[in-house]
């Protein structure tokens, strides 16, 4: 069986989250491995969020602003 990574992504409400939305509307396809958490700004990110993500066994963390 192929390894399917678990990726946690933190997306900025105004940038990447909207981009992800528009990509969906335009019917682009992208890997289904990521789980999205919407944040109001990448400046809200805290090192703790990322450490916590790895602690619950995420294989990768993507921050998009």
């Amino acid at each position: 069986m192929q390894f399917e990574p678990r990726i946690l992504s933190f997306l900025c409400n105004w940038c990447c989250y909207a981009a992800a939305d528009s990509a969906g509307v335009a019917r682009f396809s992208y890997p289904p491995n990521n789980r999205v958490i919407r944040i109001m700004c990448t400046g809200r990110m805290d090192p703790q969020f990322v450490v916590e993500a790895f602690y619950v066994r995420a294989d990768g963390v993507f921050v998009g602003g």
Partner: peptide, 22 residues
């Protein structure tokens, strides 16, 4: 861990970033 930028209008860029990262 990665951090990258795509504006609201850059859907394709976001797709590219996420696909590459995955």
């Amino acid at each position: 861990f990665t951090i990258d930028w795509a504006s609201a209008a850059e859907g394709p860029r976001f797709v590219k970033l996420l696909t590459e990262f995955t």
